[in-house]
Write a protein that binds this DNA or RNA. Structure first.
Lengths: 228, 228
DNA sequence: ACCTGAACACCGTTCAAGT
DNA sequence: ACCTGAACACCGTTCAAGT
């Protein structure tokens, strides 16, 4: 049997928030709803963010939430915007523009991976664009410093953004799905790999995503800027 | 009021399949379930693939489906596998290995974009790995021909796969989400872009994904193989 | 071996009614 | 202005019962 938690029974349940458990219930407002929703997502993932669970967490009726945030869609949108704003500022490191661009890529990836709930949120809402934002300014600056101009510079900025975000999204997928890739082996043994056992071995092994990313980012930037 | 369609009332409804509408109902089997599910996804998207809609489409009870395919999860898994198998074989074009790798990347992207329901499916199920498969063999061959060996060759193969699939996934996101990027402008006007009006203009404009992909793929491959 | 309806435990959202 | 319960239209899945 399903029932919504009443405010008065909040103490009895496995609540997510810690600060609010023992005190009085403050008046419900938009910020409180959003904070609680964010906490829920952070601790139990986006799929746990249902209007009913959120209401239980807040100790209110489900319908009260609607008065403050409209509906689930706009709640998620607001949550994404907030989390993006919370991302640390991304500052480049390294001597050459080339190094600094690679460092920006690496830092953006680290930052996004440190907020997996954000990626999941964006995932769910289809607003990947927002994940591009944090490095935008810095990338423009560095690409310009590297000597690229006009449309070509813009394209380089976008290429790096797409690579990083695409990579992070793919990584998240891989983490969700269990390993199971049956029959992949046979693809490699046939032709070329037979002559190159080290290649065959490398392809059979688990992907080292950190190294793969580092190599990809470096290669892309090298390709974009031309030989040093 | 919700009710499931009975076999006898199939003719009366807006069914998705065309071939089966007027005929007798063949005996329900696994393949029929999968075919109908695939058709549903192709025409109305993954989100339309509910067990109940599928049952209505088949003219059976919802529960009958479970006997043949287990549950929704395994139904989707099987659907993904099938669609991957249906993808056309991807053959490289061009004179140099470098050109052929770029061509493989481009063709994989085109192939995946031609099956948007596949991407959506994989999306939903978190099995991105499978989208890598179609080009695997060919990529290994070309990377080897380009002179890369061992772990380095393997990494190049993966880098290209990740780039293409990541790009396609991102593209799909962007298509789902309406344009709306408020306040992006101000990021560019400030610093560097002020000195480079062409850059500012390019950044303000919509992204030309085809050109961006072409440039990215070329840059990545150049970076991976080193200067020609 | 295959198909059924009923039931269970969930969803998001609307709405009239309360204070 | 804010909060409520009841209700609606959906979900996926299980299960005992039929043929």
């Amino acid at each position: 049997m399903y029932f919504t938690l009443r405010r008065s029974s909040l103490w009895a349940c496995n609540t997510v928030t810690t600060e609010r458990v023992k005190g009085e219930h403050p008046r419900l407002n938009r910020d409180l709803v959003l904070d609680t929703a964010a906490e829920l997502v952070k601790q139990q993932g986006v799929e746990a963010l249902t209007m009913r669970k959120l209401a239980a967490e807040l100790g209110t009726a489900v319908t009260s939430i609607y008065w403050h945030v409209g509906n689930r869609e706009s709640l998620l949108t607001e949550l994404v915007a907030r989390t993006v704003a919370e991302l640390g500022e991304i500052r480049p490191r390294g001597r050459t523009p080339r190094d600094r661009i690679v460092s920006l890529a690496r830092t953006l990836r680290r930052e996004l991976r440190a907020h997996p709930h954000l990626v999941a949120l964006v995932h769910e809402r289809g607003r990947t664009e927002q994940m591009f934002q944090p490095v935008a300014q810095a990338l423009v600056h560095e690409v310009h410093a590297a000597g690229l101009r006009g449309a070509r510079a813009a394209q380089a900025v976008r290429a790096v953004q797409f690579q990083v975000v695409g990579f992070v999204v793919l990584e998240r997928y891989r983490e969700r799905a269990p390993v199971q890739r049956p029959g992949e082996q046979e693809l490699w043994d046939a032709d070329t790999a037979g002559q190159d056992p080290a290649l065959a071995r490398a392809l059979a092994a688990e992907v080292d995503v950190d190294r793969l990313f580092a190599a990809s980012a470096r290669a892309l930037v090298d390709g974009l800027l031309g030989p040093a």
